Simulated scan of single mutants.
Amino acid sequence: MTYYHPGIYQFELPFLTASFVPDENDLVMIKYCDVEIHVGRNKSPLITVLISTKKEGMSPTNFIENVVDVILKGYLPQIVIDGINKADIRWIQREYYPEERFHEVQMKWNKNQNRFCYPNWVQLEDDWIMKEHKLVKY
């Protein structure tokens, strides 16, 4: 049996881009995305993770595997007590440009690398997360 702490978890998550070039102050820019995790809300699957581009921010699309890896290994073990069944997680990405849209991000689990890879985006047309998320409106 899986034990978990139900609720909606919101936070800002930093992610690195492909550019490691420092600016004039020697700072390497780190970008941020918004994350909202829905756990045990009488929805299927058990966990829905919404990763959202910040308004006027850089999209995490090209770095989605890294963002997912941080959430999967750094945040979900605190929320789900008895280990995480990867089939119980649904990954959603929200973009704002050129208009608000939602995609389910389907990925394959790579046992050798111990992480998700090969993302594929499937656009959502009518889904509960589109109406029930608590993130700031664009």
Results as ranks from 00 to 15, higher is better:
F20W: 12
W128A: 06
H133Y: 08
H5N: 08
T61Y: 12
E100L: 09
Q78V: 00
V67E: 04
Q106K: 13
D34M: 10
Y138L: 00
M58F: 05
D126N: 15
N114W: 13
G83K: 09
T53H: 02
L76N: 12
N25D: 05
V21M: 09
W109K: 12
E12D: 07
P60S: 14
E100H: 10
K131W: 11
Q10H: 14
E65W: 14
M58Q: 12
S59F: 06
D127I: 04
K137Q: 14
V68C: 14
V21D: 09
Y97W: 10
D34L: 07
E100F: 08
M29Y: 10
W128Y: 15
V21T: 04
V105S: 05
S52G: 09
R41N: 09
D34R: 05
E104T: 09
R90Y: 00
K86H: 06
T48A: 07
E104K: 07
T48W: 05
E65T: 14
E132W: 06
Y118I: 04
D26S: 09
Q106Y: 10
T17E: 08
D127L: 02
P98V: 02
N114G: 04
F11T: 03
K54C: 03
I51C: 11
I51P: 03
K108W: 11
N42F: 08
M1T: 09
Y96V: 00
M107V: 02
N110R: 10
F11P: 11
K134R: 15
Q123T: 00
L72T: 06
P119F: 09
I79G: 11
H38A: 05
N114T: 10
D34N: 05
F116Y: 07
M107L: 12
T53G: 02
C33E: 03
D82F: 07
D23W: 13
E12P: 00
M107I: 01
H133A: 04
V70M: 08
Q113I: 01
E95T: 00
K43M: 01
F11K: 12
H38Y: 11
F63K: 02
D34H: 06
I79V: 15
N25Q: 07
G57E: 04
H103L: 11
A18P: 05
K108N: 13
I129E: 10
N112E: 12
V35A: 06
P119H: 12
Y3C: 02
E100K: 04
F20A: 09
I84S: 11
G74M: 10
N85T: 02
L13R: 13
F15C: 07
F116L: 07
